[in-house]
Amino acid sequence: MTTLTLSKANQRGPAQGAGGRPEGGRHGRGRGEAGRGLPGHRRPAEGLRRVAGGGHPARRVGHRRDGGRPGPARLPAGLRDPVPTASCSPAFDQIVSQLAKMRMRSQGRAAVPVTIRIRSAAASGRWSTTASHPRRCLRTRRGCGWSPAPARPTPTTMIQQSIHCDDPVIFFEPKRRYWDKAEVDTVAGLAGALPLEAARTVAEGNRRDRAHVRADGQDLHGGRGGGPRRRPRAGSDRPALAVAARPGHHLRVGPPDRALRGRARGPGHRGIGAEIAARVTEACFYQLEAPVLRVGGFSTPYPPSRLEDHYRRTWTGCWTPPTARSRTEMARGCLR
């Protein structure tokens, strides 16, 4: 076990998953070191250009529209290296229009096992591109998985799983978690690791009738269900689940032993929280004592820095419509 920051852990994982490249290899140093930011900061989407360079990506994997080249085509092993992007905006079109569709367009002949590392959730105190990039759009693309890097304990494992996946995977790295430290097992392999798309129970509670469902690992602080800026209360009475979802892939929800009352915290309108709330309602309708409440951002662009806390609603917890909670509870402003 080694104590690493999330930044270092994210860097260590690709080294293990892509053939033992030493830490800080081709893609340079970990964040938090001198120079800050991804090595490709001034070269956005350099890796993606490398994949797509020389014409349509289909040519790189031997694909022809007439299907004349039989047999599966694979990208060379070297292209399984995770691709860091300073901003996914320049790469957005290639990811959505090409990368996510390669397998289906080639009728399964072309595998595009590209892992794209994208910084997200910067909360950098300015009009942040990483906090407002089209992440939610990427999440909904069929054919392209996404994985939020969790705060702990498994960023090294999850990025290795992303690298080994035969589909393109967007690996979101929460920038405001880069300097969180945790014990990381850098020796254990992927055997026995939780599948990439599985939900993870990060905190056991003694009340089984309530649960916090966290749709985004980046918001988990200290591996439990507290708000990003709140350390989890000792002896929290409800379990917290971290959910990493590949579009249309899982979210297996079954009726709990007892009634479930939960809140999904994530993007609001059309976010992953909506999907979870719908699935929970479908599967647990007769056990629910109250509707699933979602706590998400407003339907506005990312605001100026001085309004950031209002937008992210992480200063103490959440707000909910006045019809759903008493004013006393609202004034307290906490997820309880």
């Binding site: 407003f298 209002h310 707000w319 909910t320 419509p321 006045p322 004013r327 609202m330 004034a331």
Partner: peptide
């Protein structure tokens, strides 16, 4: 909704 929340303080 957010205005109502802010007014509750």
């Amino acid at each position: 909704q957010y205005a109502a929340y802010l007014d509750s303080f």
